[in-house]
């Protein structure tokens, strides 16, 4: 069983985590005109990298949303950090 690092709870069983999305996308500014292509790219386009990938995960028991960097081939976890602004690890 692999263990993933929650920035708040430490190393926990991988079953407690939920993969949410790839990191790095910004929701289009809906106060401006947003083209269909922009919506498609935001909603559906994935880099889906081989190797190092930066992803948004949720630790289900504590409900914290955080950033985790992993290698998608070796499954090694490289780093994890909180997304909250006030949290400094």
């Amino acid at each position: 069983m692999q263990r993933f690092p929650c920035p708040f709870c430490g190393l926990r069983d991988e079953r407690e985590f939920h993969f949410s999305a790839e990191a790095g996308k910004t929701r289009p500014d809906t106060t401006q005109d947003v083209s269909e292509t922009e919506w498609r790219d935001y909603l559906y386009a994935q880099a889906n990298p081989v190797g190092v990938s930066e992803e948004i995960w949720v630790h289900i028991p504590c409900r914290e949303v955080f950033l985790m960097k992993r290698n998608t081939v070796t499954m090694e976890v490289l780093s994890s950090r909180a997304l909250r602004k006030e949290h400094t690890p």
């Binding site: 692999q2 991988e14 939920h18 993969f19 998608t72 081939v73 070796t74 499954m75």
Partner: peptide, 10 residues
Amino acid sequence: RVPSYAQRGN
């Protein structure tokens, strides 16, 4: 439930 190219399961 983990994105992967590893060709081995968890």
